[in-house]
Amino acid sequence: MVRMSAAERRESVIRAAMTEFARGGYHGTSTEAIARRVGVSQPYLFRLFPGKKAIFLAASERCVEDIIRTFEEAADGLEGEEAHQAMGHAYGKVIVEQPERLMMQMQMYLAVAAAEQEGDREFGEAVRAGWTRLWDSLHLRLGADIEQTTVFMAYGMLINCLVAMGFPPEHRVWQGVYPEVRAAGQVER
């Protein structure tokens, strides 16, 4: 049996945490569930991360970085409308094939709102920094056009909300949304 390095185990915890937090949110997910998914003890989990908040923030960071990488790979070598279309198509594919990324995003936003109501700004600062990196990456890929970036991000949030609420692809609320996402139509709920 091959033993994982601490870095590999840490990565497996982050991936497992993304899945668990996507399903249960910050408050509804236990570190025990994350440890169980990875196959480690809770004490070992806390040797890798100082606490649940650190695990959640690492999972949030990974979620954003994965989305940025998806957009960059989709738009590689493309400019303008071609890049825009390629990134829209890639996001539609992510939603169909990796819905936990979408749900992790939604859980990030909820965790920020809840934490800030309790006076904890750490969640918000970290998540906003990641979101800003996403914005900046898209903005550059879209030719530094502020309107196009805003529209792209607005469509993305609409798509997130529609999928999270379980609207079937044929429902009228999808009319006008990126054709790639509607064509993917296999958004399973």
Results as ranks from 00 to 15, higher is better:
G77E: 07
K52G: 00
F71H: 13
A59G: 07
E73V: 08
R62Q: 15
F49W: 03
V64E: 10
S60D: 06
E61L: 09
I67M: 14
G51K: 04
A59Y: 09
R69D: 15
A74C: 11
T70M: 14
F71P: 00
P50W: 00
A59F: 07
K52Q: 00
D66W: 06
E65T: 11
T70P: 02
G51C: 09
G77A: 10
T70F: 08
S60W: 04
R47I: 05
R69T: 12
A54K: 11
A74Q: 14
A75K: 04
P50S: 09
E65Y: 04
P50T: 07
P50F: 00
A75F: 09
A59W: 09
A58E: 01
K52R: 14
L48P: 10
G77F: 05
R47F: 02
R47P: 05
A74W: 15
K52E: 00
F71N: 10
L57Q: 11
V64R: 10
E65C: 01
R69S: 13
G77P: 00
G51L: 04
F56E: 01
G51S: 15
F49M: 04
A74R: 12
G51M: 04
P50N: 03
A74H: 13
A54L: 06
F56I: 02
T70G: 04
A75D: 06
F71Q: 06
S60F: 02
C63I: 02
